[in-house]
């Protein structure tokens, strides 16, 4: 490092200094607002802390309870993993399908793109309340429409079997946000590839499988990671609509974290829960990153 610095000419040194100086505010912010809370959170996970009183060191007791005698930990983890498994593929596929539709060149497409993106910018609480009304079993729009075609709709959020799918359904409503990112990826695909494929006799389906999908894999990979993390963080729906019920069918991991931290005043344990979630997400991300070498194609490949 020092030899590199010595090898630099004065102009390069000055530029480097200016660069590092410009970085200082960010580094300070990162240390204070990111690194410090993470370190504190790790420390607190080994303590009993009611927030009001000073923390007390209890070693691994929080983790011992979590893994050996806490049914709510396993229940919340199960519910969250089920939600991820159910909603993630739906969000990825529907987001891509929507992006393909929004990529068609027809008049007024900018209007449609705006309309589909709107749900992504509406407050989560407002969205939750709206879905409560839509899926109300007796008077909601969904069951009224189903009744019109002779189907008796379920009790949605108020049914142990339907509550989780209902939350997953809600999450799909926001695919407009990811569709815009897919759209950017789609528009980066060079048109001459499609023209060449057309000359070779490829139909639209062949073009999609042979050109669109492979060249979109970097975007797909990015979306997969972002949506995965987002799915693990599901909270508002449980907080506003179901309070984790019925029968803990929507008792999501972050809802449990919130209850432990702020209702049960057990912030040490809640810190442990948060840390375990981070580890789970890191492990899955590393695994996906490892597999990405086999299915993600970059232009440089």
């Amino acid at each position: 490092m020092l030899s590199t610095w010595r090898a630099m000419n004065p102009m390069a040194r000055r530029e480097a200094l200016e660069g590092y100086t410009a970085l200082i505010p960010w580094v300070i912010g990162f240390l204070i607002f990111t690194t410090f809370p993470i370190i504190m959170s790790i420390y607190l996970s080994f303590t009993e802390w009611t927030i009001i009183e000073p923390p007390t060191w209890i070693g691994l007791a929080n983790y011992e309870r979590m893994f050996t005698r806490d049914p709510l930990f396993w229940q919340s983890l199960k519910v969250t993993l089920l939600f991820v498994a159910f909603s993630l593929p739906l969000k990825l596929v529907l987001g891509l399908m929507l992006a393909l539709l929004l990529n068609i060149k027809v008049p007024g497409m900018n209007f449609f793109r705006t309309v589909f993106y709107l749900p992504a910018v509406i407050s989560g609480v407002a969205v939750a309340l709206m879905w409560m009304w839509l899926l109300q079993p007796d008077t909601g729009v969904a069951n009224t429409l189903l009744a019109a075609i002779g189907i008796q709709g379920p009790n949605w959020f108020w049914d142990r079997d339907w509550a989780l799918p209902s939350v997953a359904l809600m999450s799909i409503w926001k695919v407009g946000g990811s569709a815009i990112i897919y759209l950017a990826g789609l528009q980066n695909i060079p048109p001459h590839l499609y023209e060449a494929a057309k000359i070779d006799g490829a139909n639209r389906w062949h073009s999609f499988w042979g050109i669109t999908l492979p060249l979109l894999t970097p975007t797909l990979f990015f979306q997969l990671l972002i949506e995965l993390i987002d799915s693990f963080k599901v909270f508002t729906e449980a907080f506003v609509i179901t309070q984790g019920g019925p029968l803990k069918a929507t008792y999501f991991y972050l809802y449990y974290f919130y209850e432990e931290g702020f209702r049960n005043f057990n912030m040490g344990y809640a810190s442990g829960l948060a840390l375990v979630l981070v580890v789970i997400i890191i492990l899955i991300t590393v695994f996906l990153n490892f597999t990405s070498k086999r299915w993600v194609y970059y232009e440089s490949d």
Binding site: M132, W133, Q136, P137, D138, W158
Partner: peptide, 8 residues
């Protein structure tokens, strides 16, 4: 009323 009715 059911919990759903009360909630809404």
């Amino acid at each position: 009323p059911t919990p759903a009715d009360i909630e809404i």
